[in-house]
Amino acid sequence: MSWLEANRDYVLDMLVQHVRLSVPAIVISVVVAIVLGRVAWRWPRVGTVVLGTASLLYSVPALPLLIVIPVLLGIPLRSGLTLVVALAVYGTALLAGTAADAFRSVDGRVREAAEAMGYSRAGLFWKVDLPLAVPVLLSGVRVITVSTVSLVTIGALVGIPSLGNLLTDGFQRDIRAEIVTGVVGTMLLAVVLDVLLVVLGRLATPWRVATPTGGAR
């Protein structure tokens, strides 16, 4: 604890950096994955290609991705943007398939009845498909949130500050307490964001709380 007390400002600063890097990456992943998942759901043939590419991208380890992306995009390696893009690519790759599943999970009878009642195409997406896709989507968002928060730490290896700096700095200066603080801090952040997601999910899907089975019948 004494190390933490002595370095509280530094740790807090790194925590803030960590949040600034992980949250945008997660948000971008979710938005892009919903778009790709929707495309894959709507046009299954395109979907096979999109989801296949996503799964290939996902098998590329994060650190090499972090080095290749700035070269491809012509942005500096040691910038937060690089890390956010790399993690967003990663998160999207992981989430796109789930997003397609989420749209597939919407009961066809409900969609059809909604269409027959006169929902416009946009209305059908925003008012019917998207809210009903939330439960499956959320399970995927929780996974990428936890993995994104954990992956932000590798940015420290190329000089992008986050709680990961506690890991590299602690290793180089042989301070175990610093590494432990980094590990615990990262995990705590992941847990906090996860709990937040669960709460948001509950608020967004009150009908499931009322009916524990969640079934449409």
């Binding site: 954990s150 590798i154 420290a156 709680l163 990961g164 590299t168 980094g182 590990v183 995990m187 847990v191």
Partner: peptide
């Protein structure tokens, strides 16, 4: 999944 591998 939540453990930063670099930390380990």
């Amino acid at each position: 999944r939540a453990v930063p591998t670099l930390g380990l």
